[in-house]
Design a protein around this nucleic acid. Structure first.
Length: 588
DNA sequence: GCCGTTTTCGGCCCGACTGTTTTCAGTCG
């Protein structure tokens, strides 16, 4: 079994145990275990199973090590099969309903025999749920509403869509006279590729008018909470937005807390406890003594010297951890040792490769794209239209490619734009790993992006060998979207990323971080280790129109999540440096 | 189920909001 499949089983076990009413900490152990498995390299898991050292990984004990080993070697787990058999399959889907958790599900099953969404709906419609102890009319209504909208409400959203929704809300909050400071938090601030809901934090001494504005703003479909310190709304798009109203002196603690991630926060609290401090969204207070954490924090908050996240981290003996890194994947250890990377920034980007024009499936002409690149301050723009096999995308044949190259050379020579245009292609990787153009055609271009656009259903081994063959072609400059995934729409094709990365490093081929909001591929989780081993990254917007060029900014967010520095991202290099690099590759 | 320069047992983050309650459980983040 692959690590992704193992992690999936561990997560499933956690969910099933939850439905059984098991010890919450046991459940968390499985969830943590799943996350740890995901964070390890495929080969490390295999090695640790082989030499029986899985238990040395923090968070994995005897029981988890045994289960992971069994899954990895046999592809099955007796414990999991039995557990699954003991719980009606329909119970798991009940968890999707907003406001319904494990305890309510167990009560509904025990007293009404509910074991599916259909039965729950029927029970609500007959009024049986409202009559149940611990439930009432409102609960019943809420459950029905949750059933009706479960798809819409549970859906995640592309980071860029979430950001587009959040921006005007944040601006609206900042414009209120009672608001001293407002920020967004959560996975949006951490630049996760998808976002579940929006979190807004406001520092204020007059929370009521702020909450009132928030629940009454345009685009609100439903108000789900409206309290003293918190308000929640459901927007028309189905995305939920939460507002937290915080006294100014506690704002920094809340900002850190609600930025998360959960794993990061657990580790931070643990660290604080080790220093005799209790950490919460309210503040950082002595762990000992009388009173609730909130009471202590309120007293401490008035005289706290911590007024920035930098100071908060410093108090715990840590360097400032940028929000993108707060995933509980080693950032705290690195911050402690002063080994956090200086992350690449949007301002570092000097150019972009892999963009389309009307020659293939783009919506803007070469000149329009170049003008847009110049307006973005980019020194160079790579044009990489599709090759002839991508018929659906009007891929260019040899003649049309030659015409385009001539057009680009003419444009560069004209001096019309400051932005230099590189000639390239997004050359299809054919099912057997050959490229869609002959060597002499490829040799005439400034650079070559190779991508898979067909035969997605090949076996993992075939796909891996296919891509590696393409990567090893001496004319290949960079590999496009490693997995071909479309976030929230389509899984990527099966491929052994580790092996492809090794091949790319060996062949001095760059892998792109496709910055299209739907792709963000290669995934940020793979970048840290790959870059440490020497892989270079190109942040490519894969723009199909002028507006799409700016997506490189979204890509920078993903690159930062992957711990990438300016040096590891080739598109931060100057035009002169890139020209030297491209020429050098041709000679070498 | 995991972990340990306080611990091999007893902790494991903790508070807000809602709806059902008459003092609190469940859910959520």
């Amino acid at each position: 079994m692959t690590k992704a499949e193992i992690a999936h089983v561990l997560t499933e076990i956690g969910t099933l145990l939850e439905l059984k009413g098991e010890n919450p900490f046991k459940i968390r152990a499985y969830q943590t275990g799943a996350r740890i498995v995901e964070s390890l390299a495929e080969e490390e898991i295999a090695r640790r199973i082989a030499d029986d050292t899985l238990e040395e990984v923090k968070g994995i004990g005897e029981a988890l090590a045994q289960k992971i080993g069994e899954l990895h070697t046999t592809g099955k787990l007796g414990f999991y099969e039995k557990l699954k058999a003991s719980i009606p399959a329909g119970l798991v889907e009940l968890l999707q309903i907003s406001g319904v958790g494990p305890k309510k599900i167990r009560a509904l099953q025990a007293k009404l025999g509910v074991d599916s969404i259909a039965k729950l709906q029927a029970a609500c419609e007959s009024g049986a749920v409202a009559a149940l102890e611990g439930f009432g009319e409102k609960s019943q209504e809420k459950i029905l509403e949750g059933i009706r909208n479960r798809e819409k409400y549970s859906r995640r959203h592309l980071w860029s869509d979430a950001f587009a929704t959040a921006e005007p809300i944040l601006a609206g909050l900042r414009a209120l006279p009672q608001v001293l400071r407002a920020e967004h938090a959560g996975s949006l601030r951490r630049k996760m590729e998808t976002v579940g809901d929006l979190d807004f934090l406001v520092a204020t001494t007059e929370p009521k008018p702020v909450a009132d504005w928030f629940v009454a703003q345009a685009g609100v479909k439903e108000v789900t909470a409206h309290g003293e310190t918190k308000a929640s709304v459901r927007m028309q798009s189905g995305i939920q937005a939460d507002l937290r109203l915080i006294p100014p002196e506690q704002f920094v603690f809340a900002l850190h807390h609600f930025t998360g991630s959960k794993d990061h926060n657990v580790q931070m609290r643990h660290r604080a406890l080790g220093l005799g401090l209790s950490m919460s969204e309210w503040g950082l207070v002595p762990a000992e003594g009388e009173g609730t954490a909130k009471e202590k924090a309120e007293q401490a908050g008035r005289k706290t010297d911590i007024t920035s996240e930098e100071a908060l981290f410093k108090k715990l003996g840590l360097a400032f951890v940028p929000p993108e890194l707060r995933e509980g994947l080693g950032e705290i250890e690195a911050a402690e040792k002063g080994e956090l990377p200086a992350l690449v920034e949007v301002a570092d980007i000097r150019g972009v490769f892999h963009n389309h024009t009307t020659a293939s499936d783009g919506h803007n002409t070469l000149e329009e794209m170049t003008a847009a690149a110049q307006a973005l301050g980019l020194e160079y723009l790579g044009i990489a239209d599709h090759s002839k096999s991508s018929v659906q995308a009007r891929g260019l044949d040899e003649q049309r490619l030659a015409d385009q190259v001539a057009e680009i050379r003419k444009l560069n020579a004209s001096g019309k734009f400051k932005t230099h245009v590189f000639t390239g292609t997004e050359c299809d990787i054919l099912p057997d790993g050959r490229l869609d153009f002959a060597d002499d055609v490829l040799a005439g271009l400034d650079y070559v992006v190779v991508s898979v656009h067909s035969a997605f259903k090949q076996s993992r081994d075939d796909m891996t060998a296919r891509i590696i063959r393409a990567v090893e072609n001496p004319h290949t400059t960079m590999l496009g979207h490693l997995t071909g995934r479309l976030l929230l729409q389509r899984e990527g094709y099966e491929v052994d990323a580790e092996k492809v990365i090794d091949a790319a490093i060996a062949s001095k081929v760059v892998i792109e971080l496709n910055a299209s909001p739907w792709r963000l591929d290669m995934d940020w989780r793979l970048w840290r280790k790959a870059a440490e081993r020497g892989l270079l990254c190109a942040i490519n917007p894969d723009a199909h129109d002028t507006a799409g060029l700016a997506d490189f900014r979204t890509g920078v967010g993903a690159a930062r999540k992957g711990w990438l520095t300016k040096e590891q991202v080739i598109t931060t290099r100057s035009l002169a440096s890139i020209k030297r690099w491209l020429t050098g590759r041709k000679k070498g």
